[in-house]
Amino acid sequence: MGVIVGPRVIDAGLSLVTALLAPVAVAAGYPSPAQDYFDGRIDLNEHLVKDVTSTFIVRVVGQSMEQAGISDGDELVVNRALEPKNGSVVIAVLDGELTIKRLRITPTGVILQADNPRFPDIEVPALSDLIIWGVATRCLHHV
């Protein structure tokens, strides 16, 4: 096995400036009154990624989820550990492709829907007939 290059995990936070974050009292002069209240800046990872190990970022190609506020080119935060529920936006494997759909679980079967009536529903008898790759938890929409 060759030399393994350590992975560079995508960091949505602001790690470059972390070192400069904490205000430090200057030797001469009045200490900053804000210092005692500073606990670090908002870290997007902390809020958008609940389970680092099982979370992946994917990019959307296509318009079928426009009405859910998910546009072509948006990035999605996908957690593979979550149990898909009725109404979840899921990434399903369809014909060997990762496909984004809304999951509907009804007493008579399971439906994968696009949030756009132009695209037909896909119906299966049970959830186990589907390969659900992960559940989308956030959409990083480009405004």
């Binding site: 992946f56 970022i57 994917v58 990019r59 959307v60 190609v61 296509g62 318009q63 079928s64 989820m65 998910i70 072509d72 990035e75 999605l76 990434i91 492709e97 990762l98 496909t99 984004i100 696009a114 695209f119």
Partner: peptide, 8 residues
């Protein structure tokens, strides 16, 4: 180089 998911 993120994985692409099809919305179609």
């Amino acid at each position: 180089e993120l994985p692409l998911v099809k919305a179609a």
